[in-house]
Nucleic acid binder design. Structure first.
Lengths: 204, 204
DNA sequence: CTTAATCTGAACCGATGGTCCAGTTAATAT
DNA sequence: ATATTAACTGGACCATCGGTTCAGATTAAG
C-alpha cells in the first residue's frame, strides 16, 4: 500500500483548529468559574465558534469534559501502568495506592474544577446515550488499577467495592472545594491514612 | 397564658394535606424512577396539585428532597446520639462507625434513590440560596458524628477530612446502584473493612 | 357573616443541553 | 486551475426544567 493508503479520512484542518480552540476555551473558563456556570454556549463563544460546532465535535457537554479530562489523564495512566515506582510497578501495593491518590489529587487541583466538571456534566446531561460512570474509560482504568492494588494487598476484602468507594471520595463537594483551594497535600495525607489502615492493618 | 396563646399560626388544613400528598408522591416516584426523571412538575401532577404549590411549600426542588430525607433521617439521628450500642454511646468508636454506616446503607437502600436524589437536586439547583452540602443539616450532623468517632479512635489523623471522604462514598453512582439493587450488606461489609483498618490498624 | 391571611395552580420566564440544516470550506480528483 | 464532494460550521430553533408571579379560591378567626 502506498503511503498509508487507507488514510482514514483525517480530521480537516479547520476542524482541528476549532477543536483546540474549544478545548482551550473550556479549560480557561473552568479555571475561573465553577462548572455549573460554564455552559456549552459560553465555551463556544469564548472559542469563537458556534454552539453547533461544539456538539458536532464532542457529541455532548459530557463528551467535551471527558475529552478535557482524558488529555490530563493519559499521562498519569502511562505513569502508573509502566512508569517507575512508587506510581508504577515495583513498590508494594500500599505505597502505590497512596502515590496514585496523591497524583490524582494533584492533577485535580491543577485543573481547578475538572473532576467536578465531569461529574456535573454527567449529572446534568439530557442526552440519551449511556452516560454512566462505568462507560467512562478513565474511570474504568482508575477503578481497575485501584481494585487491583487493593486485592493484591488484601485478598480477603471486597476490592471492587472499596475501589468504588475510594474513587468516590474525589467527587464530593467538600473535597472538591479543598482541592480548588490548593489543599491537595492535606487530602493526600488523609488518603494515605485510609489506605495505610486498610492495606497494612487488617489481613496483610 | 391561655391555651398555648402564642399559637404560631398553624399550617392550614388544606396545606397540610397537600404537603403530605406531595411528599408521598415524590417518595413513590423516586422508588420507581431515577432522580433525574422525577421533575417537580411530575411530582406535582402525581400529587394532584399545581407546580407552584410545591415551591410554595418546599421552596425548591432541593428543599423537597431534603424534607423527604429528613423524615427518614430523624429517627436514625436519635439512635446514634442517644440510643443503645452499638449505634449509640457505649460501644467503641470502630464498632459505632461500622454500625452507623450499616444503618445509613440500609436507610438508603430502603428508600431507593433518596441519597442520590438529594445529591441530584443540589447539583441541578438553579436557586440562589446556599445549596452547599455544608448547609444541609443532615449532612452536618452525620459529618460531626463520623468525625467525632474517628478522632476518638485515631487522634493522629485528619478526622474532618476523612469523615468527608467516608460520607462521600454514599453519593457515588456505582454505590447508589448497588444500594438500589439491595446489596446494602455487601456495602456495609466493605465499609467495615475500611473503618476497621483505619481505626484499629494504625495509631490506636 | 365578615374579614384577613394563607394557600393554590396555571401561565409565564430565563437558561440550558441538544438538534437541524442551508450554506461554507477544505481536501481530492481531473 | 477547476470541479467535485464530503466534512464542517453556526445560528435559529426546540423541549424541558427549576423557579416566579399573581389573581382567585379557601380556611380560620373575630
Amino acid at each position: 500500500m502506498g503511503k498509508n493508503a487507507r488514510m482514514e479520512r483525517r480530521e480537516r484542518a479547520d476542524a482541528a483548529r476549532n477543536r483546540q480552540a474549544i478545548l482551550r476555551a473550556a479549560e480557561e473558563l473552568l479555571r475561573r468559574h465553577p462548572p455549573e456556570q460554564v455552559s456549552v454556549e459560553r465555551v463556544a463563544a469564548a472559542a469563537g465558534v458556534g454552539k453547533g460546532t461544539v456538539f458536532h465535535r464532542f457529541g455532548s457537554r459530557t463528551g467535551l469534559m471527558l475529552e478535557l479530562m482524558s488529555e490530563r489523564a493519559r499521562e498519569l495512566e502511562q505513569d502508573f501502568t509502566e512508569g517507575p515506582p512508587p506510581l508504577g510497578p515495583g513498590a508494594d501495593p500500599a505505597e502505590r495506592l497512596v502515590a496514585f491518590f496523591a497524583a490524582v489529587a494533584e492533577l485535580a487541583a491543577r485543573n481547578g474544577n475538572l473532576m467536578s466538571a465531569v461529574e456535573h456534566a454527567m449529572v446534568t446531561s439530557r442526552s440519551h446515550d449511556e452516560q454512566s460512570r462505568m462507560a467512562n474509560p478513565i474511570y474504568l482504568a482508575w477503578h481497575r488499577h485501584v481494585a487491583g492494588l487493593i486485592a493484591e494487598g488484601r485478598p480477603d476484602v471486597d476490592a471492587e467495592q472499596i475501589a468504588h468507594m475510594l474513587l468516590g471520595t474525589l467527587h464530593m463537594e467538600p473535597i472538591a472545594s479543598r482541592l480548588r483551594a490548593g489543599e491537595h497535600e492535606r487530602l493526600a495525607a488523609a488518603f494515605a491514612d485510609l489506605v495505610d489502615g486498610l492495606l497494612r492493618g487488617g489481613g496483610g
